[in-house]
């Protein structure tokens, strides 16, 4: 008796649920027909081809917003993803039916060498580790008003985990394999220490690793590796790639042929060349940094 009753209740319940389901499906079917929004299928296709990190490096609110803008404008001029690869950009251009915008791979560089050795701290900052706050309070532990503060706002701004504060130097270190050159770090830095530069042929770059805008004599007091605007590099450069403005040299990446004459000429070692093969007669400088990092690692382990 009980079994029969419960079976009847069960059947009833299943029947009611099924009826509601069918009814809802019919209503939904008609509503979806009635209020259907025609969305350009290309938007989804383009979003597929974008990195999807929503880093905002393009200047738009995320990847989908960028894709919509591209479709609206029908071109990639002025609205490209700075971190996309060339192949994917070409595929996007094919979808849009235009030419691919010229995208040179970019990378963030840190224009400061004010580590503990070059620019020893004269005061001790024990406030919150925020560059924004530190910049509003004082000129820096080493008194350089243009150099890196080392509080790591750039590391927090990076969506790709490409920037870390090097414990040995207390300066940001950019992992080139991770950096996509979106420029989020450069926008966050209150002092404009980080510059977004073309990655360069074979990832080789020559740049001035300093952001000093003070007179040479003042800068020399604060930091051993500061650019003093002496202009020696401009004279030695055969391609007119270097200009000095506000006591600071700048190398135009478009004109630089990477001869590295300026690197040798700079009396302060402020010009840096990266990813070049080591010079044949091996000298001491290659070994030194290795020792130092080993030391600091053991120190942190302790």
């Amino acid at each position: 008796m009980i079994v029969l009753l419960s079976a009847a209740i069960l059947l009833k319940a299943v029947g009611v649920l099924a009826a509601i389901g069918v009814l809802a499906a019919i209503v939904l079917f008609f509503i979806s027909k009635k209020f259907h929004v025609e969305e350009d299928p290309r938007i989804d296709q383009i979003v597929e081809l974008l990195p999807g990190a929503n880093c905002g490096g393009c200047g738009y609110a995320g990847c989908k917003n960028l894709a919509e803008t591209m479709i609206q404008r029908g071109t990639m001029e002025g609205c490209t993803c700075p971190s996309n690869t060339k192949e994917k950009n070409q595929q996007i251009a094919a979808i849009l039916g235009t030419e691919a915008a010229d995208s040179t791979p970019m990378v963030a560089i840190v224009r400061c060498q004010g580590n503990c050795e070059n620019a020893p701290a004269k005061v001790n900052y024990d406030g919150t580790t925020s560059c924004f706050l530190a910049n509003s309070i004082f000129s820096g532990e080493n008194f350089c008003p243009n150099g890196c503060l080392g509080c790591g706002d750039c590391t927090k701004a990076c969506n790709f985990g490409a920037i870390t504060i090097d414990p040995a130097t207390q300066l940001p270190f950019v992992d080139e394999t991770q950096c996509v050159g979106c420029g989020a770090c450069a926008k966050t830095c209150p002092r404009g220490v980080i510059e977004i530069r073309p990655k360069g042929l074979k990832d080789r770059r020559v740049y001035v690793a300093c952001n000093n805008k003070e007179k040479g004599a003042v800068a020399m007091k604060n930091c051993k590796a500061s650019c003093i605007g002496c202009g020696k590099c401009t004279k030695v450069c055969k391609f007119e790639a270097i200009t000095v403005e506000n006591n600071l040299a700048h190398i135009d990446p478009a004109k630089c042929k990477m001869c590295r004459l300026c690197v040798k000429e700079c009396p302060k070692g402020a010009i840096v060349a990266v990813n070049f093969p080591a010079p044949k007669p091996v000298e001491a400088p290659v070994e030194k940094p290795v020792e130092k990092t080993a030391e600091t690692i053991s120190a942190t382990v302790k």
Binding site: I137, F138, S139, G140, F143, P145, E214
Partner: peptide, 8 residues
């Protein structure tokens, strides 16, 4: 000239 904050 640098004031107490160190900025000129």
């Amino acid at each position: 000239v640098a004031d107490i904050t160190g900025y000129k």
